[in-house]
Nucleic acid binder design. Sequence first.
RNA 1: GGGCCUGUAGCUCAGUUGGUUAGAGCACUUCUCUGAUAAGGAAGGGGUCACUAGUUCGACUCUAGUCAGGCCCA
Length: 1040
Amino acid sequence: MYTPVDPKQNFPKLEEEVLAFWEANDTFKRSIAIREGSDEYVFYDGPPFATGLPHFGHFVPGTIKDIIPRYQTMRGKKVERRFGWDCHGLPVEYEMEKELGISGKREIESFGIAKFNESCRSIVLRYVKEWRKIVTRMGRWVDFDNDYKTMDPDYMESIWWVVKQLWEKGLLYEGFYILPYCPRCSTVLSNHELNLGGYQDVHDPAITVKFRLLDEPDTYILAWTTTPWTLPSNLALALGPEIVYVKVKDGPENYILAKDRLSAYYKSEKEYQILWEKKGKELVGIQYEPLFPYFAHLKDKKAFRTLMGDFVSTEDGTGIVHIAPGFGEDDYRILQGTGVPVICPIDEECKFTEEVKDYKGSFVKDADKAIIKRLKEERKVVKHEQYLHAYPHCWRCKSPLIYRAISSWFVNISKIKDRMIATNQEIYWMPEHIKDGRFGKWLEGAREWAISRNRYWGNPIPIWKCDTCGDLECIGSREELKSRSGVYPKDLHKHFVDDITWKCFCGGTKRRIPEVLDCWFESGAMPYAQNHYPFENKEHFEKHFPADFICESLDQTRGWFYTLHVLATALFDKPAFLHNITSGLVLASDGKKMSKSARNYTDPVDVINTYGAEALRLFLMRSAVVRAEEIRYNDEGVKETLKTVIIPLWNAYSFYVTYANIDQIFPTSGPEEPSNPLDQWILSELERLIDEVTREMDRYDLMRAIEPLVDFIDLLNNWYIRRSRRRFWRSENDYDKRQAYETLYWVLLTFSKVAAPILPFITEAIYRNLRSPEMPESVHLTDYPVAQLEKRNLALEQKMKFVRRAVTMGRALRSMHGIKVRQPLKALHLVTKDPEERRILREMEDIIREELNVKEVVFRENEEDLVEYKAKPNYRVLGKALGKDMRRAAEKIEALTFKEIQSLLEGSTLVIDIGRDLEITKDSIEVRRIEKENLKVLNEGSLTVALDPELTEDLKAEGIVRDIVRAVQTLRKDMDLEVTDRIELFLHTQDPDVQDAVEEFQEYLMNETLAVSVRWNKKGTLRTAPCGDSTCAIGLVKAS
RNA sequence: GGGCCUGUAGCUCAGUUGGUUAGAGCACUUCUCUGAUAAGGAAGGGGUCACUAGUUCGACUCUAGUCAGGCCCA
């Protein structure tokens, strides 16, 4: 006996029950344990920050990360799944600053780095419990007990090892990075912070200054700047290679500037005389006199020359850009490799240093005035104006930011770029375009990776520098640190290791450089660090690298996917992962980003409690969001998924259990040799389903793997069960009935396995009820079904499709005639010229007859009196061969007469004139059949269907009784009778036709409604039912 | 400004080497079926396949450009 099924199942409740079962039986751990010794399928989980709660954006990759491992497990692989946490980084520091009410570098330092870091440590895992709860509630199986954290000392030590590997391979170097910097907070701002603060319009001085050419003392290059304070640091001038420049004579002096900019400096053409015109690229390497004396000695290092820069434009200024490499990204890059050094003569608070001695100690922006005054006195300024522009400000203190060179550590990407591009070719990407598109293009254009951060809560870069000779040493482990310093730190955070020093061979002291690592570096090193490689688990690591599969959303192409790839390529010359699914963004239903403040989406917990996690999962997985496209989330979609997929599946299952319990038939396998075509057909469809789902899952195409499941549920419900329904409760043929049960049992059991990775809850519930005791206790512990293609009957699948088409047309005809299906009709005429089609239809005659409620199906061959023919060329066949003649052939073919088409259909060949003779046959054309007017027939393709609408007295009477049956059944249901309950039936009507009809079909009526008696009386629960053209009062009493 | 993705019915989206009636679901109207169903079925309305140009006998599909949206980068 099966546990009875509630047809009004509450799915969130069902899910809770399944979760409780998994929990109680440790099903997840067992699913891994039972595969011990099998091939492993390696999965890496990308670590989220736990500073916020999971939301819809996490559910998409989260669900994919559940489905694929479940699937691989059922395919026989051992799939370990460890959750991980990203613990370091700015988000945590901000959170802490907010909480402590402090802000910025100086305040953190006066608060105390040790105290600050320990506070960060204490809040990082604040939401871990909630994460675990929600992730688990979503049905995801992942190991939280054995999770990795990037702040664990072991994890951090492996990172040191990774850094040391890069160091030894010569892939680490110290350089400069031009970054926005807040002079008041004395701190670098990240990109994110830059966006926080925003741009504000400010007035700045804009001056145009004269640079005197070395070889032509009367000629000056004009350059324009809004940061006069950077002029003392000028080391070059940049021109645009394609920009046209002119040398103009203006009084005793000559000036060089962009031709397009002349009008900004002269009101009239009479004020100057053009001496020559040249493109920028002809003006490379011109030497000029330094504006200020401070760095004049750099002339020996090729400073003070003109260069080409593609960033130069003629929108502002003179079309010539003053270059100070310490104060601008473009400036810095253009001088890289030229030998000109980077100078940045300002201190932590952006005050000039000793190097610019005249302005030493004054804040750079405050020095603008003095600098302009001096240049004016030296007659080096041609124009001085005010300039209004958008300028970035600090989000903390609102001060205008200064772009300046910051000493940073870099991974030398250009050295390994070619290998990164090569190893990317070994990765399978879903969707495919990411490989050579977004990710591939990003690799090609990859820039040097700055891995140092001037922060506190992070993994300290394990490099020690001598304060005397500058010698550098990279430390790769705690042991190594101990061997140098004698100290074995129990923790590797900044406040534990910064005080560790030792004596350099030169007599100086080795001290750690102050920076910590970019937290992306830490997550990218996760394959090694999660296992404390190479200090432990060497063998384990070697078997678990690279990963078979990872999945995250699109933004990670530049994030985790990238850093994993860089480090794996740098360390092992391999990709870090072999298959990747990239998911898209989840937007709110208004097409905008989901935002808490805009309240434009429902709390996920409410969605789960209303419709269930399964409906939510399925809704997401059926959409293109699993192919990196964005999705608009709305509750309606989840609701619809529940209504159209999950509930119908449940109903099929509930139907089976209800009747199997009544009949006490409990199969343990499918039918040996099914004889009913419906059984053969659905079993064939089942093999097809397994085949298709397996194929698409193996291609990592979830959307395409899910569609066959949805289609199958529809076929099962709306054809197999619908057409087999009576077989389950009609007792005449026990053999056929047994086979029906066996078939439906097998289909449901197998389906639960096929769909288990995708619908883990409902399939578990179905499987657990249907399984026999020797089967594993959970569907997730079973082996995935393997398609047995030899069991497929392709011809039968085709036939059934054809039959369903005939039925569809029959139904349409009924509504054309205005005759409802309950009214039996004499005959349906099926007309086709194709003898094979006629044979198929004849085989399935019973199904058609029952479905359309007709007494007879008549097969005919002659369609000519029902339809007209019209010919269209078969472009696919003729097009390639005919080319330009196609148009003329099309005209001729469309003009073919009825007779000509008919003879083609009968197999003859016809010659048409298209300027030459062209032989055409049946295959060269497509015949359209058009129903003749005034005839109630329908045609589709080769099949034409007509209905005999004549109603005899007998048919009418049967129709009346079926109306009564229908009304009784509805009433039974409304009275909540069991399907097996017997009734006493009472009828009352004045209409003699109804009375006669009931008399004639009384046995049928009693059989159908399980009535033990029919009496003419008014009694019991009453209802008036329309039947035929009149009505009948119906009364019911449950029989004792 | 650059790279990638997207643009098809009121809404959400399919559309597999280019082939002539562009599909589905939801929603809407009318009718209908049901002894599992919260369902199912039939008919109907609703489309310049973002736009422009090109390649081709033929373009939703290929190419180029434009416009709009998104993500990432600058």
